[in-house]
């Protein structure tokens, strides 16, 4: 395959960036998107040029490190798939592919396609924990959890914190991410002691980080590689309202 890559290049957070065109030949349709970028980088290094910086870690779709807006869609055209699991066979020979970093004031660009997502970490620090007894772990079977709640909690826990929801949202809102984390803990008995204080603290931190507000357009849900439902956002709103009015 031959490709025309239009990639965002930016030296660092303080410099101006721009789209740079690269022609890439001999791309195998069986390569993953990141392997295709690896090939490009090898060529750039051989030419003594600066390789394109991009985030990646597990390359098996579970770590949340990879990002990239590919042709205007977070993680590219394939539904429910991270960039690392996207393969070049999803593209056409000779296709022009625009590759950009996540864009949000709370996700400043560090270099090229790499953004700083530590705003997510600060949100997690505000409430992503539970109170647990010290000593031996108790027998898990002593805590009854309904199948419905367990499933809903596990669906929310599938969130890998990649930030595609923020990148897709026209308002740069982190509502889907925060809501997923809140449902993950708030639906289980272990998460109940902090359910109220957790939602207040995490939502306040989300606002403080400069993410936008949710206008219920639901592009986040469609962009999410783990298909997190916007139902979690409704639950977050409900919990936030309850905790604000009736205390934690």
């Amino acid at each position: 395959m031959k490709l025309v890559l239009k990639i965002w290049r930016q030296q660092n957070g303080n410099s101006e960036g721009k789209i740079v065109d690269y022609m890439l030949d001999d791309v195998s349709p069986d390569m993953s998107f990141l392997e295709m970028l690896d090939v490009l980088n090898e060529k750039l290094i051989a030419k003594n040029e600066e390789p394109v910086a991009f985030d990646h870690d597990c390359r098996e779709g579970i770590c949340g490190a990879c990002s990239l807006i590919i042709n205007g869609v977070p993680h590219g055209p394939e539904k429910a798939t991270t960039t690392c699991q996207l393969h070049m066979r999803k593209f056409n020979d000779g296709e022009e592919i625009v590759i950009e970093p996540w864009r949000a004031s709370a996700f400043p660009v560090i270099k090229d396609l790499v953004v700083d997502r530590s705003s997510f970490d600060r949100i997690i620090q505000k409430g992503g924990f539970i109170t647990a007894n010290t000593g031996n772990a108790q027998d898990g079977n002593t805590l009854p959890i309904s199948k419905i709640d367990a499933d809903a909690s596990m669906d929310a826990a599938a969130c890998i914190g990649c930030g595609a929801c923020v990148a897709a949202c026209k308002n740069g809102s982190a509502s889907l991410f925060v809501a997923a984390k809140l449902s993950h803990l708030g639906l289980l008995p272990q998460g109940q002691p902090e359910r109220g204080s957790r939602v207040l603290a995490m939502v306040m931190q989300m606002d403080e980080e400069g993410f936008g507000s949710c206008t219920n357009t639901y592009d986040c849900e469609a962009a999410c590689p783990k298909e997190i439902s916007v139902k979690n956002i409704a639950r977050m709103n409900r919990d936030f309202f309850k905790a604000s009015l009736f205390g934690v």
Binding site: G72, A104, A106, K170, G172, S213
Partner: peptide, 21 residues
């Protein structure tokens, strides 16, 4: 809200598609 939402994305995308909105 619109002002907060606008400042949440200071640099806009070169190419952006809406998916299900």
């Amino acid at each position: 809200l619109a002002d907060k939402n606008r400042t949440a994305r200071p640099v806009s995308y070169t190419k952006k598609k809406s998916i299900q909105s």
